[in-house]
Write a protein that binds this DNA or RNA. Sequence first.
DNA 1: AACGATACGGAACCTTGTTCCGCTTAGCAA
DNA 2: TTGCTAAGCGGAACAAGGTTCCGTATCGTT
Lengths: 197, 197
Amino acid sequence: MSDNEAGVGGVAQSKRADARRNKETLLDAAAKVFVASGVDAPVRDIAREAGVGLGTIYRHFPTRADLVIAVYRHQVEACAEAGPALLASSASPYMALREWINLFVDFLVTKHGLASVLRSDSAGFESLHSYFLDRLLPVCAELFDAAAAAGEVRSDLTAYELMRGVGNLCVGAEGDDRYDALRLVDVLVSGLRLLPD
Amino acid sequence: MSDNEAGVGGVAQSKRADARRNKETLLDAAAKVFVASGVDAPVRDIAREAGVGLGTIYRHFPTRADLVIAVYRHQVEACAEAGPALLASSASPYMALREWINLFVDFLVTKHGLASVLRSDSAGFESLHSYFLDRLLPVCAELFDAAAAAGEVRSDLTAYELMRGVGNLCVGAEGDDRYDALRLVDVLVSGLRLLPD
DNA sequence: AACGATACGGAACCTTGTTCCGCTTAGCAA
DNA sequence: TTGCTAAGCGGAACAAGGTTCCGTATCGTT
């Protein structure tokens, strides 16, 4: 992590509030543009979307690649942080798991172009996949275990299997209108349920 | 195939001799530059290497991608054509097979960057891999079967297995100085030999 | 030898990543 | 509140690479 980030779960730190705000704005804008135009979208488009100058982007992210990586990590982070929050706020562990998986699927489908970045052997991208797993698997496991402990879901599978299952259902989404990954995942997650009968 | 190419095994046809010559020169120059600098080498470098202007490149290959594809096919083609030629000129089918496999390995190691092109989902690159197999497997089989028929090599494996074996030995070559794919392949091919004892 | 079609070279153009620098402004001190 | 100053900002300018265009040179034919 760079020098001006708080630890896990923190938010960009900086002397000046506007700088912090801009960095956040940029990450959001970049994410939006990446979804709309793919990860190859020009830096200028992101600057425009964020309403900032090119210089501002390059101060926060020295190269284009740094921005892509930051967006990816930012999204993984957001997804990870949502886990405990949902667990605390939802009516039941199962509902929390269900909602979290929706976020997760959003991320998977959205990252579309980011997947190719993961494969790339360009400098700086190689550790993203392991980061992804390291960060999200424990979160998924926490939610899943909580639901299992509450007797709401079957427990004859692992959190890893669940994540893989969801992930695989999302493969090839986007581009095939006849295939709704979100719906399939919903079916899968419904299938987890242990109905009291 | 474009409109001004002869059929399989042919060479570029064109009204004017200089145009034909230039196309050939370009393919060679591009291959050379790709090996030296990777498939991302600038078009200008290729023009310089070939000693022609940019316009010449773009007349023969409407886009950069067309050039890459043409080089790839050109090399597959050259490799394929070499098979029967070697069979006719070599001292024995086994020696022909051995020499052909050297060419094949050259191609594999050389295509290095081209491999990434094969994976790419950019327009125009998707059919290259199947072209590769369709064209080269029969050639390899012809040489292998000839050597087998002459009793020079063991015949308890298929040409496909041989190609896969050689291909796999070449994976990860280039970039690891401690690994010499060429030598390993030589060992493998030597192992094919049925020594009269 | 002359001529028309074909091909050539490379300057010019466009897009995109990156750098640079004068101007603005947040945060602090008096 | 008012200055002060360094952190930040915007965007023009630059660099690099793909692509286009067109005046010129060359080929093949008559």
